[in-house]
Design a binder for these strands. Structure first.
Lengths: 332, 332
DNA sequence: AGCCTGTCAGAAATCGATTTCAGGAGCAAG
DNA sequence: CTTGCTCCTGAAATCGATTTCTGACAGGCT
């Protein structure tokens, strides 16, 4: 592995001059030429570890997410990666499995690896990014806010998304609309449930006492379990709002297994159904622009890395209702 | 940020002693105590960059994959991450988008960041890991072999998977079985197609000239396009083998859009259908144990990092046919 | 007592880049 | 001709850990 000293020796200059050439500082044209030539013949690549040690900041940003197998987060990851790589940063993806300890571990590593910044999709409301902020590192929260600290955040309009989904079902003629959302510790889950409740409250025609709100974990299994329970009720609902994409998948599985069509039992999903093999599903979906969330978070992070100061900014991104085409034959 | 010098000063010892304590070398009990205490009061965390520079090897391994949004690779990623983190390594996930230049870029970074090793799912057969190997870095290929070099690799038995899928359709009574596999440059795609062709050749009863082999990109769009074309043929097949999970999703979408059930037109998929909302699909699937691939690759990598020498090992993992339960009502 | 061995701890070198500092050359103005 | 300035360049310090080298000291043996 050639070092800057080897290049300097071959080019007949000092290492300082080589460094200057590499970093585009003023150097006489002839030395510049001999340095670049020497670098090429030696196939020299600067050692990023040494550079990071000296500069005290690496050209790496971390993206910390709770579930790498959820398309919601991988799509987000692509967005972050796009903007970051555009600006010359590498993105390292860290999967916490929703485990706060693992998350803390990754944040510690980001700190001691001198990473330039972190985009954090917090596992819980107790997530602590303060040590990073104290050291002046850039931090952006995404999907869920980081508590307390004045950190930039990019979040979905979850209440609005809950409203859209619920109203879509109401407009389709369903009258006993349940909701399966995520754990009550997760603010996004709670907010989506609030949106659902708001709509039902506003619609005076809604029969009282028809408010079935179920909390599942935000996974397929959770959706299945709660959905199955709803169907067992003595006086079951006639439609359901699924709090996220995976819960939606689980709920749909149950319905399909029992041969219940979306026309009989309404279902609307907050978040995009991943890799749906059935485009005729007739399921209204609140599309969440995850990739945009990612690029936005990336952009905010880059601004912070470039020295932007000031209080935490908050970008709220709305969901977008997508109702299925009424006639399946019209789909191409 | 406290450094080792701060700890040394507070503990009244030399930095060398602090380092020894931190790395579990023999030190007198009293100094050991004062060092650990000083470290705690200063909330000291070793700077990994400095350590990496001196040690010439970081505690980070890279996982380079072509498509982070494909569940096949995210599941693989979990496997790698599990084993690596178990051994104290952080995993950085790099998405190449199937772009050889991006891949090369990531490999260069792995080199200049002094990463301990790389698990590489190559984007193309031209992928070059030689610079890493020349520098003694650990490299393991996964999903597809890396050409030339004697690198460890963990791959699916793709021919066998193709055979399983094809035979499942034949056994179900289909007689004109087409195949939509991936690009002809991708060896996994070609091998799955070969398995399909083998079975058809072996079955003497198969009508000659009935070998529809289509190449798609390994994405949903590719599966849709080729599937639609197959159905337009003057003398269309009556079943199809989908070369990977996403092609399978695309093909199923077309079938569902046209109201064709898997009973009328057979389909078998190589790879697991992601997040299927329809568990009653009656689609035979060749399950590919991706997570196991990941853990295996991780284990091989760790052995190499720990100094294992010798020629490239090759682990071939078989797929496993999973046929749907005949009676949907039996599913719970 | 004298010698040898082994253990522990500090001083200093080291990893490979960047950056500060200081000096020398060249040029313009006084 | 001198002063003052800019522009290049190299020597050396620096980032923060690890590791080698060296010396001090204790204990065992003849």
């Amino acid at each position: 592995m050639a070092t800057i000293y080897d290049v300097a020796a071959l080019a007949g200059v000092s290492p300082a001059t080589v460094s200057r050439v590499l970093n585009g500082r003023a150097v006489s044209p002839d030395k510049e030429r001999s340095v670049t030539e020497a670098a090429r013949t030696l196939n020299y690549t600067p050692n990023r570890v040494a550079r990071t040690l000296r500069r005290q900041l690496s050209e790496v940003v971390a993206l910390v997410i709770p579930d790498i197998e959820n398309p919601f987060f991988t799509s987000l990851a692509r967005g972050v990666a796009d903007t970051a790589q555009e600006a010359g940063y590498s993105v390292v993806l860290c999967n916490t499995d929703g485990d706060v300890d693992k998350e803390q571990h990754f944040l510690d590593i980001a700190l001691s690896e001198n990473m330039a910044g972190v985009v954090l999709a917090p596992a819980a409301s107790t997530s602590v990014a303060q040590p990073l902020l104290d050291r002046g590192r850039a931090v952006v929260a995404v999907d869920r806010p980081v508590p307390g600290a004045n950190v930039d955040s990019v979040v979905i309009d979850n209440v609005g998304a809950g409203r859209l989904a619920t109203r879509a079902l109401w407009d389709a003629g369903f009258r006993k609309i349940a909701c399966i959302t995520g754990p009550s510790e997760i603010v996004t889950a709670v907010d989506r449930g609030r949106g659902w409740a708001q709509v039902l409250d506003e619609i005076s025609a809604a029969p009282p006492g028809m408010h079935f709100l179920a909390h599942a974990d935000f996974r397929v299994g959770g959706g299945r379990a709660r959905m199955a329970e709803l169907l067992e009720l003595a006086s079951p609902p006639d439609a359901v709002v699924a709090g996220n994409n995976l819960v939606g998948v689980g709920a749909l599985q149950i319905l399909n297994e029992r041969g219940i069509s979306p026309a009989e039992f309404g279902i609307a999903v907050i978040g995009d159904l991943p890799f749906s093999a059935h485009s005729e599903d007739a399921v209204p979906v609140v599309h969440l622009p995850t990739r945009t969330m990612g690029t936005t978070a990336g952009a905010l992070l880059l601004e912070r890395i470039d020295g932007h100061q000031g209080p935490g900014r908050r970008v709220v991104i709305p969901g977008e209702l997508r109702t299925p085409v009424p006639d399946p034959a019209a789909a191409r």
